[in-house]
Design a protein around this nucleic acid. Structure first.
Lengths: 207, 207
DNA sequence: TTTTGTGAAGTTTTTCACAGCG
DNA sequence: CGCTGTGAAAAACTTCACAAAA
């Protein structure tokens, strides 16, 4: 069974909602109510949820605790990934300093920087290494995922070093730079500047 | 002529590429080359670009300087928007401290915080106000766009205050919280935690 | 009766394939 | 001839509408 990419994004939202409601009096929720809260259509909710089994009860709705458990399994990770953050500037620091960032699916294992003042230090308990060592240290520590929070110019170089380690499997990139990497490596980009541009474009259209 | 949302995102990427290449020896680029560099199909590039007029030359390709100029017009803003940042925590600070963040389409006009230590201070030359004053100050300063970088719990409250100002037209949100706002207000969300989850989901699938 | 799960229909977005222009 | 621009086809995604279950 193949699941569309937009569905996954929504599953994350359903999961969050279920977590939030689990600590309330409400025990049951309908696709209609989920839809209203997330600003989508009820049929979309039902279709998305049905990809992962029959979670609801006809005539009743979705039991919130079961929904939460079920979605937790859907989003569950087969292992605790080792993750390295490359770039401990303002953004990198914002990420690792934010408790919501952490979850049981990964363990932050190493930080990398080019700033000599930061190399050798620890931030939030994690050692910061010289970016020149990316390849060696990812291999030694068996890090399979990197989070790229470096200036655009450095992005490709860092990715290349990470690929060279031989263990890289996934990249979460915050640079707006275009990076090239092997097909078999999972890639997610968070493009803040593009989001800004899209907002201004939308604003222009509604003027 | 109506332009699809995914097209706009790609237009931003074409524009960036054109800017980058304008400072190189290369004068002309084909849809094929653009496509390769951005990891998409050449037909997609041509279709996207054709929405905004005949920019290319048949048998030749796209003149990079013309392409850049043309896309600049497409992405151009009719005015310089006044923008307020709500939440001067790590993420907010990362944004306003990053020079790439700024462009001629907007002017950062006010900051808001609940942390008393920050209120009254200036950061990067911008005054930081009490979040309780959002409504009044947005109105006084005619701020039409807010950037939300507050904890999930505070998100809806801040948005409501901004809407109450009567001048709000757009929101760029970094919270993972779901916020409700009037139909006529443009909304862009950058959901970092959802991106992380999507990456882990993709990793699981390729295992 | 109510609300889910789901084929089928509809819509949006991407890709193909080729006419047309330089 | 080479590469764009673009209708038409294909694919992806969403919505409808209703049978079926509680």
């Amino acid at each position: 069974m193949k699941v569309a990419e937009p569905t996954i994004e929504r599953i994350v939202h359903y999961y969050r909602l279920a977590c939030r409601l689990e600590n309330s009096d409400q025990k049951i929720i309908s696709s209609q109510e989920i839809a209203e809260r997330l600003n989508i259509k009820a049929a979309q909710v039902r279709k998305d949820l049905s990809y992962f089994g029959e979670i609801g009860k006809r005539g009743v709705g979705y039991k919130i605790s079961e929904l939460r458990e079920h979605l937790e399994i859907v989003l569950d990770s087969p292992k605790r990934w080792k993750v390295a953050l490359i770039g401990v500037g303002n953004l990198g620091m914002a990420l690792i300093g934010h408790s919501d960032f952490y979850n049981e699916k990964f363990e932050l294992t190493a930080l990398f920087e080019i700033d000599q003042k930061k190399i050798g230090q620890k931030f939030f308990g994690i050692e910061c290494y010289d970016a020149k060592e990316i390849s060696r240290i990812l291999r030694e520590k068996e890090v399979e995922v990197i989070i790229l929070a470096v200036p655009d110019k450095a992005a490709q170089r860092c990715v290349d070093a990470a690929v060279a380690s031989g263990c890289l499997k996934g990249v979460l990139s915050f640079t707006s730079a275009q990076v090239t990497l092997p097909e078999n490596i999972a890639y997610q980009r968070v493009d803040i500047l593009a989001a800004l541009e899209k907002l201004f474009f939308a604003l222009k259209e509604t003027e």
